[in-house]
């Protein structure tokens, strides 16, 4: 292999690696939990409005009251959120926020955004309570093993 083609190939490989990283970065899915529960940050309490509509990345707006949580699936880091306060003095807030790439589920606090808290409080990592083993799979698996097999079932040629 000549040195020129070696360089070409390395460049191609490198480009592919960079492309992969970029694709991962923009394609990584996040579950956003849009949350209107009141939060206390640095001793100050933030409350959401009575009735709002929330839309992330231009999706259909959803109505939310106080102390609610909705699930939104998005991909990539940068997101745009549009909050329209319906109750009281109607106003529209449009903000951008970022979700770290390796944060699978993020809690997005509406009161923090509405109350103009520091941006680092807008998005926090969400850790779900330990999920139990899904029983369906468990049962299916045990069921497989418990199937009455003829003594020589293994000698049956199934797939080659």
């Amino acid at each position: 292999m000549s040195s020129r083609s070696l360089i070409q190939r390395s460049a191609l490989l490198f480009a592919l690696l960079v492309l992969s990283a970029w694709l991962f970065y923009i394609g990584k899915a996040h579950t956003l939990l849009i949350d209107t529960n009141a939060v206390t940050l640095d001793g100050r309490e933030f409350k959401s409005a009575e009735a709002i509509t929330v839309s992330v990345d231009g999706k259909t707006p959803e109505d939310m009251g106080r102390a609610e949580r909705i699930l939104v699936s998005v991909s990539g880091q940068q997101h745009r959120i549009v909050i329209e306060v319906v109750s009281g003095g109607a106003r529209k807030v449009e903000k951008r926020f970022a979700v770290p790439t390796f944060m699978d589920s993020a809690l997005v606090s509406i009161p923090a955004i509405l109350g103009d808290a520091a941006p680092e409080h807008w998005v926090t990592k969400f850790t779900a309570a330990d999920r139990e083993d899904t029983p369906a799979e468990q049962m299916q698996h045990e069921g497989d093993a418990a199937l009455p097999t003829p003594p020589d079932a293994k000698s049956l040629p199934s797939k080659p």
């Binding site: 492309l19 694709l23 990584k28 899915a29 991909s75």
Partner: peptide
């Protein structure tokens, strides 16, 4: 890509690059 949670068109492209 399903395991890593990469979705949409970037996910498919990434799957193709991994398969390459």
């Amino acid at each position: 890509i399903t395991d890593w949670g990469v979705v949409g068109l970037p996910g498919l492209l990434l799957a193709m690059i991994i398969s390459l």
